[in-house]
Simulated scan of single mutants.
Amino acid sequence: MPSIDIRHAHTLTPAKARKAVQEVADKLAERFGIDYEWDEDTLNFSRSGVDGKIDLKPKHLRVSAQLGFLLSALKGPIEAEIRRVLEERFK
């Protein structure tokens, strides 16, 4: 299965970083029906065709996901959109 693994540095406080991730998760749930849950500082998410997580650390975060067969063809655009959102929210 194709995978996505993105590391992104940030300067936000832990509370602000968590709030930003929560806002993104809420939008994904609303738009794409993604289910998610927090496990301490890790947001686990899933839906048909994708399973992943966002690990929050004090100075960086890591987005990792496994894509199913149908979404594997869209790996490039999905990665590009993730990077765009990270740049926008985690400066």
Score class of each variant (00 low, 15 high):
40 E>N: 14
49 G>T: 05
34 I>R: 00
46 S>K: 13
43 L>S: 05
31 R>F: 00
31 R>M: 04
40 E>D: 15
32 F>H: 15
35 D>I: 05
48 S>D: 11
45 F>R: 01
48 S>W: 00
58 P>T: 00
57 K>L: 14
30 E>K: 09
32 F>W: 13
53 K>Y: 08
43 L>E: 04
43 L>A: 10
57 K>Q: 14
44 N>V: 07
41 D>W: 05
46 S>W: 08
48 S>Y: 08
55 D>N: 01
57 K>D: 13
52 G>S: 11
38 W>K: 00
38 W>E: 06
42 T>S: 08
57 K>A: 14
50 V>L: 14
49 G>A: 12
41 D>S: 13
55 D>V: 12
36 Y>D: 12
42 T>A: 11
42 T>F: 03
30 E>G: 05
59 K>V: 09
43 L>M: 11
41 D>E: 15
48 S>H: 07
56 L>F: 08
45 F>H: 04
47 R>N: 11
36 Y>M: 02
54 I>T: 09
39 D>Y: 00
45 F>Y: 15
47 R>A: 15
46 S>N: 06
32 F>A: 10
40 E>T: 12
31 R>D: 13
32 F>E: 13
36 Y>A: 11
47 R>G: 05
41 D>M: 08
31 R>V: 00
59 K>E: 15
48 S>P: 01
36 Y>K: 03
30 E>R: 10
51 D>H: 09
34 I>E: 13
56 L>G: 06
47 R>I: 07
59 K>Q: 13
40 E>L: 11
46 S>L: 05
48 S>G: 03
42 T>Y: 00
39 D>I: 09
46 S>M: 00
48 S>T: 04
59 K>G: 12
33 G>F: 03
33 G>N: 05
31 R>G: 13
40 E>H: 10
52 G>M: 06
33 G>Q: 04
45 F>L: 14
55 D>L: 15
30 E>D: 11
57 K>F: 03
50 V>Q: 01
56 L>K: 00
50 V>R: 02
54 I>C: 09
54 I>H: 02
36 Y>F: 14
56 L>R: 02
57 K>M: 12
51 D>C: 05
38 W>Q: 07
59 K>F: 11
56 L>W: 00
51 D>K: 07
47 R>P: 01
33 G>M: 07
36 Y>N: 09
38 W>N: 02
43 L>C: 10
41 D>I: 05
49 G>F: 05
48 S>F: 05
36 Y>T: 07
50 V>S: 04
59 K>R: 10
